[in-house]
Amino acid sequence: MKIEEITSLISGAVVEGSDTPQMEVDCAFASDLMSDVLTLRTDKNVMLITGLCNTQTIRTCEMSDIKVIMFARGKKVTEEMKELAEDDEMLLIETPLSLYKVAGILYGAGLPGVY
């Protein structure tokens, strides 16, 4: 699913990184537990949907090769997080919707889960 489609479905905005028309994700994983994110075994392009908004969210995705992170329920990305994300060419998205709602909308629109 293309990033543009994702952001329009969940009233989100890209706050770090440049979205390109070619950029898309294959599947998504929703979690606030970074330990769980670190156990993912996939080669697909994953988007993480989370309510955990700190530098370790970015670091965890860096180690897990996750390039797109969506922060739910109005969580605001800090400058420090943006710098880390920029260094790894990630895309950060903010949405006012809750994690449950975001997951439901995107799954319903055809974006599958990792498992």
Binding site: L33, M34, S35, V37, L38, T39, N54, T57, T60
Partner: peptide
């Protein structure tokens, strides 16, 4: 609060 401490670290290191 940082998203860790669920008792998954050492088993994940092993795998």
């Amino acid at each position: 609060e940082m998203g860790f401490g669920a008792g998954m670290g050492l088993p994940n290191m092993q795998s």
